[in-house]
Simulated assay, not measured.
Amino acid sequence: MTEKIIVIGANGQIGTELVNALRNIHGAEQVIASDINDPAYAIRNTGPFEFVNVLDKDNLHHIFQKHQPTQVYLLAAILSAVGEQRPKMAWDLNMTGLIHVLDFAVEFKVSKVFWPSSIAVFGPHSPQFNTPQYCVMDPNTVYGFSKLAGERWCEYYFNKHGLDVRSIRYPGLIGWRANPGGGTTDYAVHIFHEALKKGKYESFLSAETALPMMYMDDAIRATLDLMNAPAESLTIRSAYNLAGISFTPTQLAEEIKKIMPNFAISYAESDPRQAIADSWPKSIDDSYAQKDWGWKLEYDLPAITADMLTNLKKII
């Protein structure tokens, strides 16, 4: 079957790379990138693009009607740190946008929908080490509880409407092709830019704050692997845990120093993002993803560090 795929939120950190990966697989004309803002040159000039506001129901309905997608990737969201500055807008965009897409996916008989969740669904009373798929989940950020509510809606639409919705609880994501979008884990991208520009970096997270992180190449591969998995092999219809690797700002700085010996890191005295990070898991158990669709991580911390510095040197 020929796929027709819409990626909503194509300008973001994940969308920028996912659009290119999907176009390489399915052909440029079969993947419609869409966003509320003007796209990057590479996205707009390698295939079709539509302006889409997920809160504008009529506009979104028109896009579904026009393209009759077989798959939809909904990536539009307000992330954790920005969400705490604009909580009601974050809730509205993250929730109402999802409901609109789920409703239209049912109406237009979309075969698969992908929607990203996050480790932000966990909270201060969740187990912090090797956090399991099922446990106490008491997120204390708007982003976190919008993602937790979204997971319940995804599973609800699967059970009530037979809609094949698939989701991953992403850890922090590190990539060089696009800028991060306002999350608590963004330091792990900013640090590479500052290392190359200034030879130093002030971290907004404390030296020993461990968080699960993942290289973007692994995240895109995981997304495509999940979407390509046979429906009958999937046992999770909320969102799959995905572990990545866990490290602290200190450990990341030490890896950078192996390549750039004069690099220096310092730490801010206080930042509101620290409280968010402290409520999140330190490491994740992703055994369901391993068992159900064969997930396996490829990039460790040395490989991430080397690849980030090598590629960013070309564009900074």
Results as ranks from 00 to 15, higher is better:
residue 295 W to C: 12
residue 29 E to K: 14
residue 86 R to H: 13
residue 33 A to T: 03
residue 264 A to N: 11
residue 282 K to T: 09
residue 162 G to P: 07
residue 4 K to N: 04
residue 128 Q to P: 04
residue 278 D to H: 08
residue 247 F to L: 14
residue 183 G to I: 07
residue 4 K to Y: 03
residue 198 K to V: 02
residue 232 E to D: 15
residue 34 S to P: 03
residue 261 P to Y: 05
residue 305 T to R: 04
residue 14 I to M: 15
residue 3 E to K: 15
residue 176 W to C: 01
residue 176 W to F: 11
residue 236 I to S: 00
residue 93 L to A: 07
residue 307 D to I: 08
residue 297 L to G: 04
residue 92 D to K: 12
residue 296 K to D: 10
residue 196 L to W: 03
residue 85 Q to R: 09
residue 108 F to N: 00
residue 148 L to H: 04
residue 267 Y to V: 05
residue 3 E to G: 03
residue 291 K to L: 15
residue 120 A to D: 12
residue 114 F to R: 01
residue 144 G to D: 09
residue 166 R to E: 04
residue 17 E to P: 01
residue 245 I to E: 13
residue 70 T to V: 06
residue 162 G to I: 09
residue 303 A to H: 11
residue 298 E to D: 12
residue 54 V to S: 12
residue 61 H to L: 11
residue 56 D to S: 13
residue 171 P to N: 08
residue 85 Q to A: 10
residue 98 L to S: 02
residue 304 I to M: 15
residue 20 N to Q: 14
residue 315 I to M: 09
residue 48 P to Y: 10
residue 2 T to S: 13
residue 162 G to A: 10
residue 51 F to Y: 14
residue 197 K to H: 05
residue 50 E to F: 07
residue 184 T to E: 05
residue 75 L to V: 06
residue 161 H to P: 00
residue 290 Q to P: 04
residue 261 P to W: 04
residue 9 G to Q: 03
residue 63 I to H: 00
